[in-house]
């Protein structure tokens, strides 16, 4: 028998493992301490404290569902719970974390070369480097296939021209993953934001997601070396489908499950740091997450489903 707690939105807590609950509690506590007391100010200012990125990295939240390269290697359910708690604080804070982990880091992790991964992922997992993801353009939001940004060959190198719009973290990013048309189809490029010709003006006067940096990316004759391209993907399959597919394949690996830890926060830090060697050693992937089926855990119980939303 399971009892549904008063704060359970979906009534799924009884399906969660101890680690998953611990991770959720840790993130909730961090949100209570760091986000809720400050969010009114950040929202009014139209900004947020960038120190949050380092702290999120410290907690293991950045690229939390990825393995290796300093990432925590948590399962999809844990990552979902962490994002749920961040979102309960503010969408902007959740956006900061999920754009870093699910979009920028995941693209590099999934489609990047070994050198690209070792260059960027550890710094991004720690929150020392901020990433953004340039896919949408002002006239191509839901239809990115029509994008006008174009990368042309210049000998072995590349030259990119175009603008991207509504890019979270853009103005504060150290690296942008930019998607562009090429003669061989759409490809992804890793663009350090200090590359000449790159600029990222901040979008102001927003009435939504105010505690989030949203930007335009402008690329004017941005010259990139040959190895700036993500080698393992061509076409929209890359930018459109990467986050969920990757996340679900990875299961939580905590090397010392059941070990006495001094608190929830320590446990997540332990997950972030201690799991790395284990993750590197373990090559086996499984469709199960944390001992139970991901699909079942993500399914909304019939009684709790909100019904068909109509507008």
């Amino acid at each position: 028998m399971s009892r549904t707690g008063p704060l359970e939105l979906l009534g799924i807590d009884h399906l969660l493992t101890e680690e998953e609950r611990d991770i959720q509690a840790t993130v909730r506590e961090w949100v209570e301490q760091r986000v809720k007391p400050n969010i009114a100010d950040w929202y009014e200012r139209g900004d947020l404290d960038l120190a949050l990125m380092r702290e999120a990295g410290d907690l293991g939240l950045l690229g939390m569902h990825l393995e290796g390269y300093g990432c925590a290697g948590a399962n999809a359910v844990s990552y979902g719970l962490a994002c749920l708690e961040l979102e309960a604080g503010d969408s902007g804070v959740r956006s900061m974390v999920s754009v870093q982990g699910s979009l920028a880091m995941f693209a590099i992790w999934k489609f990047g070369s070994e050198e690209q991964k070792t260059t960027w992922l550890p710094k991004m997992a720690a929150g020392e480097a901020i990433g953004c993801f340039g896919l949408t353009e002002s006239d191509f939001g839901s239809n990115p296939a029509g994008m006008r940004t174009r990368a042309k060959r210049d000998g072995d190198d590349w030259v990119i021209n175009g603008t991207k719009m509504w890019i979270t973290n853009g103005s504060v990013a150290d690296v942008a993953v930019v998607w562009a048309q090429t003669d061989d189809g759409i490809k992804g490029f890793i663009v350090p934001t200090d590359t000449p010709g790159f600029s990222a003006p901040k979008i102001t006067k927003k009435l939504s997601l105010r505690a989030s940096v949203t930007s335009e990316l402008v690329l004017e004759d941005v010259h990139l070396p040959r190895d700036a391209v993500l080698p393992d993907v061509t076409g929209l399959r890359g930018p459109l489908c990467l986050p969920e597919r990757g996340a679900i394949r990875h299961r939580l690996r905590c090397p010392r499950r059941g070990a006495r830890l001094s608190g929830n926060r320590d446990r997540l830090r332990h997950l972030a740091r201690g799991v790395r060697p284990a993750a590197r050693l373990s090559a086996a992937h499984s469709g199960k997450a944390g001992g139970h089926d991901v699909g079942a855990a993500e399914g909304i119980p019939a009684g709790a489903a909100p019904g068909t939303a109509q507008r």
Binding site: Y43, S208, L209
Partner: peptide
Amino acid sequence: LRHANNLES
């Protein structure tokens, strides 16, 4: 209203 405005996006 902060959450409501965020959800507008």
